[in-house]
Design a protein around this nucleic acid. Structure first.
Length: 525
RNA sequence: GCGGGCGUAGCUCAAUGGUAGAGCGUCAGCCUUCCAAGCUGAAUGUUGACGGUUCGAGUCCGUUCGCCCGCUCCA
């Protein structure tokens, strides 16, 4: 357990947010106009950090799936990428269940602060007295039902009638809320539209006919291209399709810095396999994804793997075998955890839905299955593949990495340093002349150019000749730069430089000619 | 959506209803041979926004936007 991971509950989110602002990791979106609730912008260091995490995922998922670890079938894991549109045909969201399932009107109770799905609330009035107080509202199978039935019986005896609350319309002045003690505390029903709506066509009217939605998840772009990928590439089940991209949800309550944002980026894999193999693939992905987050720097006990209870499964996962979350103990969730990535067994829910709604065949012909023909070859089998979905939040990953890296240290000049794993660190190295004269700046520029050329595609290589060396080290500590190379007087005579380690502040001398190899090793190359 | 707290320079914070300040950071110059050293100087604010009370509002009142905490919600 690292020092950083053991005390997240003691890390101040205010301090972390201040550092994010001060050093240019994350800014409030539209700040000069007073911000906009639920949106955040990344500054120079944050944008690079986010790109590094996205690149690491892409490399380890798409380019070299599971870093070469074979799947449960002993074969290399096969993954191909796609990049699909944020705006899809609206029918996609009908098929996926996002339109029908999440437009439900909700009712709030001003007294009890409870919130109810309007269509779930039942009501009891006196017989023929629907327009008179009191009317008793309740939720079936909750304590409120018992309580309200008792109250209604006391008031009306057997002369009652029972109906859906919504039959009253939108005015509930005569209604006693399920958990209320006074009449008329229920608000009128309000729709919760979790999807952002927009309109397609520059000259078209903004009517429902032209309505479209910003995607609430990248996953559907994969499912609706499943057949395209199967038909046009040489993949065969089992295989996965991966995608990163923005998604949008009109969250009821954006909260906790970037953790719950209305615009966010996902990194998703939809891995298709035969139903018989789904369970083993689920376990495989769950375990590897957990390990991946550990290897990217969330190595301590702040990261856990949690299997969902059956009663909290999402609509799509009920068909499958379950869901596991990889969760991180953020300072604002401690001692609890917040989700970084969910690994869901979606069954064949999505492909089946799209097959029904689009009338296009989504089944897959597997030539390795089926009974054997006389010649000993399998006859093949048609089936709708099941799907394992490791779905990660990129912004949440960045936030977790920032929280994990944040390390207060009163003993050093910066008082805090960012202990980024070298692979995600936005600044990979810095080159300093110890003093800004005597040929040192020239040497520094030389080494800087060399390192930029070799490592610049991975992140920033900085150089700085201003002010004292301690100040420059401190600045790099706060930015999370893993190592600094310093040119001094000896460099000019014997060709050696000092390497300064961020985490230990220790220094050692190496030949300048080996700086590049040294950095490569730090970066795990 | 409810309740509570908050909003002053890039950051952290001062300022009795009476001229908006400090520290740090940033920038410039000098200096400087390993950890924010030293010296000199500079820039930076419609006090979140709008309205009101007042001779006068950072301060009081209203509205609004945003952030934090709790509840709620969370595909």
């Amino acid at each position: 357990m690292s020092e950083a991971s053991s005390n997240n509950a003691n890390k101040s989110m205010d301090d972390i947010m201040a550092l994010c602002k001060r050093r240019g990791f994350i800014y409030q979106a539209s700040e000069i106009y007073g911000g906009i609730n639920g949106f955040w912008d990344y500054g120079p260091l944050g944008a690079q950090l986010k790109k590094n995490l996205r690149d690491a995922w892409w490399q380890d998922v798409v380019m070299n799936p599971c870093v070469g670890r074979p799947g449960p079938d002993g074969e290399p894991v096969e993954i191909v990428p796609v990049d699909t549109c944020i705006i899809q045909n609206p029918k996609v969201w009908e098929a996926s269940g996002h339109v029908g399932g999440f437009n439900d009107p909700m009712i709030d109770c001003r007294e009890s602060k409870a919130r109810y799905r309007a269509d779930h609330v039942r009501a009891i009035s006196g017989k023929g007295k629907r327009n008179e107080a009191p009317i008793f509202a309740f939720l079936t199978d909750t304590p409120s039902e018992t309580k309200q039935r008792k109250a209604a019986a006391k008031k009306f005896g057997n002369e009652i009638e029972e109906f859906d609350l919504l039959e009253l319309g939108t005015d509930f002045a005569n209604v006693l809320g399920p958990d209320a003690d006074t009449l008329g505390t229920l608000t009128e029903p309000r729709a919760f539209n979790l999807m952002f709506k927009t309109f397609v066509g520059a000259t078209s009217a903004q009517t429902d006919e032209n309505a479209a939605y910003l995607r609430p998840e990248t996953a559907q772009g994969i499912f609706i291209n499943f057949k395209n990928v199967v038909d046009t590439t040489r993949v065969s089940v089992p295989f996965g399709i991966a995608q990163t991209g923005k998604a949008f949800r009109n969250e009821v309550t954006p909260r906790n810095f970037t953790f719950r944002s209305r615009e966010f980026e996902q990194m998703e894999i939809e891995f298709f396999c035969h139903a018989d193999d789904a369970k083993t693939w689920f376990t495989f992905w769950r375990d590897w994804r957990y390990q991946w987050w550990q290897e990217i720097g969330l190595a301590g006990d702040n990261l856990i793997l949690r299997n969902h209870d059956s009663d909290e499964l999402a609509h799509y996962a009920k068909e499958g075998e379950g869901t596991s979350d990889i969760e991180y103990r953020f300072p604002f969730t401690a001692p609890g955890f917040g989700e970084l990535e969910g690994i869901a067994h979606r069954g064949n829910f999505d492909l089946t839905q799209h097959e029904e709604h689009s009338k296009k065949k989504m089944q897959y012909f597997d030539t390795t299955r089926g009974e054997l023909a006389p010649n000993g070859q399998p006859k093949g089998e048609w089936y709708t593949p099941h799907c394992i979905e490791p779905s990660a939040g990129l912004d949440r990953g960045v936030l977790a990495i920032i929280c994990e890296a944040y390390t207060p240290d009163e003993s050093r000049a910066s008082k805090v340093y960012m202990k980024f794993h070298p692979r995600v660190a936005p600044i990979k190295a810095a080159v300093f002349p110890l003093v800004n004269k005597d040929g040192m700046p020239e040497k520094a520029a030389e080494l800087h150019q060399e390192l930029v050329k070799k490592f610049g595609h991975l992140g920033a290589i900085e150089t700085d000749a201003k002010q004292s060396i301690g100040k420059r080290y401190a600045r790099m500590d706060e930015a999370g730069c893993p190592i600094c190379f310093t040119i001094d007087g000896d460099t000019l005579t014997d060709g050696t430089i000092t390497v300064r380690d961020r985490d230990t502040a220790e220094q050692k001398r190496i030949p300048m000619a080996q700086a590049s190899a040294y950095l490569a090793e730090v970066l795990g190359m």
